[in-house]
Simulated assay, not measured.
Amino acid sequence: MATQNMVQAINDGLRHEMRRDPRVVVLGEDVGKVGGVFRVTAGLYDEFGDERVIDTPLSEGGIIGCAIGMALYGLVPVPEIQFSDFIFPAYDQIVSELAKMRFRSGGEYAAKVVIRTPVGGGIRGGLYHSQSPEALFIHVAGLKVVCPSTPEDAKGLLLASIRDPDPVLFFEPKRIYRAAKGDVPEGEHLVEIGKARTVREGKHVTLIAWGAMVYEAIAAADEAEKQGVSCEILDLRTLWPVDIEAIVASVKKTGRVVIVHEAPKTCGFGAELVALVNEKAFLYLEAPPIRVTGFDTPFPYTLENEYLPLAHRILPAVLETARF
């Protein structure tokens, strides 16, 4: 085991897969000599050279289009989009081409592409560097969506994503790039896609979160415990396919659920989770599900901590549903 932060764990995962499989290539803006804007790819250029660690022009559509072509010719590209806010010029390539390649070819061609990109707020990035666009990709058939909250899961899920036969959106919560630290297994380490992690067992309320919001859920649960409310915390880790079995099992135990995410509330992934809970566990609910989310506005700069669903906003929702 080695103690690493999330940046180090992802770098370790990329290096491991590039050594294991010569088909794996990394491409994106400044990923080579610079090592990426957050230094996640630092050192890879020196070890693997410019044929496997490729600095690209500033063209997200070009980056993803190039990655799709590489995948169809047998490579395993791992493109980086510098911030998830910049992914929209590539949206057509992702949803119209990448997501549909297996279906449109009758299963003859699969596009093994893992798109890495930092998501979320917490770094004073303002409206163009702080968004959480996961729901836009979960809605698209053919894509898998991953968002780890710990260094160990970041490495394990990255290895699993690179080896998965289908395209994966790998969202990295940049607020905890260096703040989240933990023991990470050296060498081979995989975490199964589609399995949630129970962060904490509890009796009264199920708290569902992912990415950086897992830590806010933990902080809110600590305060709720002082008031006699026991929270079970689920870290989804994989947003799609979602581990509905784990969610239902927890809701059956607690009868109450609070969902936390940074993205705006309207049509956010929390709405789909509420629908799934109602379909699969309605008779076990003791209170209406509650969502604690970002607001239906562009992401602010000076009011960032008011926008984010931090612990001080989660706690009242927990207490409200517990006392319903």
Rank of each mutant, 00 (worst) to 15 (best):
D164Y: 12
Y45M: 14
V229M: 06
L72E: 07
I290H: 03
V257F: 09
A311H: 15
V26A: 05
L158R: 00
V34F: 15
L285M: 11
V145G: 00
T321N: 08
A179L: 15
A111R: 04
I94P: 02
N278I: 08
V258Y: 08
I244F: 13
A154E: 01
D243M: 11
E188D: 15
D164C: 08
L236T: 12
K100P: 06
M18Q: 04
I218R: 10
D50K: 10
R20I: 02
F137C: 05
L127D: 10
V7Y: 03
L276H: 07
R15L: 10
L127V: 15
H312M: 11
A135P: 05
P241I: 11
A217M: 08
Q8F: 01
P185E: 00
A221S: 14
Y91G: 06
F88G: 05
F88K: 09
G121N: 07
G28C: 12
L157D: 00
D164I: 09
E80L: 03
V251C: 03
R23Y: 02
T198A: 11
L143W: 01
L159R: 03
A212F: 06
V229L: 06
I259R: 05
A217I: 00
V251P: 04
R313K: 15
A71G: 03
R39Y: 03
A212T: 11
I54V: 14
D85Y: 11
L159Y: 00
C147R: 06
T3I: 12
K33I: 13
D235E: 04
H189D: 11
L285C: 07
D166M: 07
V25M: 10
V214C: 11
A281W: 01
K252V: 09
P241D: 09
I176H: 00
G211I: 03
L239D: 00
N5R: 03
